[in-house]
């Protein structure tokens, strides 16, 4: 600190003392005031929740969210658009019925033959392929397909 006298003469002239003061007996009763504040803080700390409730809380929350979404989406639809929902069900049911009636119409031997038939391996020659392409695809489409 002696070096400071040469480097900072103005600062060195000032007596190094604390210029601040405190109210009378401030430090004497500080602990009592602090204790009052700590007691108040302790009362504010919520009681520890039951561990099971703490563990189940996120799961219950998630289930409640799904229930809420279901109620907010499905119920209004059911109330305001009952016909639309009924039609969708009807269409699905109709398709199923058609499919089942076709399957039921086929006798057992034909059905197994149909299942055994290799549907993916189709034999065709290069000439067949060329004639298919020339009749169904234009030159422009071939050009586009080969350049992208």
């Amino acid at each position: 600190m002696d070096k400071l006298k040469n480097i900072v003469p103005e600062l060195s002239k000032i007596k190094k003392e604390n210029p601040y003061g405190v109210p009378d007996k401030y430090f004497d009763d500080f602990y009592a005031r602090l204790q009052t504040k700590i007691d108040a803080e302790k009362r504010l700390v919520p009681r520890q929740q039951n561990r099971t409730i703490r563990f189940l809380k996120p799961i219950i929350g998630l289930a409640a969210s799904f229930a809420l979404i279901f109620m907010l989406v499905y119920w209004p639809l059911k109330i305001f658009m009952p016909n639309q929902l009924a039609n969708n069900t009807e269409i699905l049911d109709k398709n199923d019925v058609d499919y089942l009636s076709i399957v039921e119409g086929i006798d057992e031997d034909s059905f197994y033959t149909l299942l055994d038939e290799p549907s993916n391996s189709v034999d065709f020659s290069n000439e067949d392929l060329m004639s298919y392409v020339s009749t169904n695809v234009s030159e422009y489409e071939i050009y586009l397909a080969t350049n992208y």
Binding site: K13, P19, Y20, P23
Partner: peptide, 8 residues
């Protein structure tokens, strides 16, 4: 509660 002089 400032108790210092001018220079302080």
């Amino acid at each position: 509660y400032f108790e210092g002089d001018e220079i302080q």
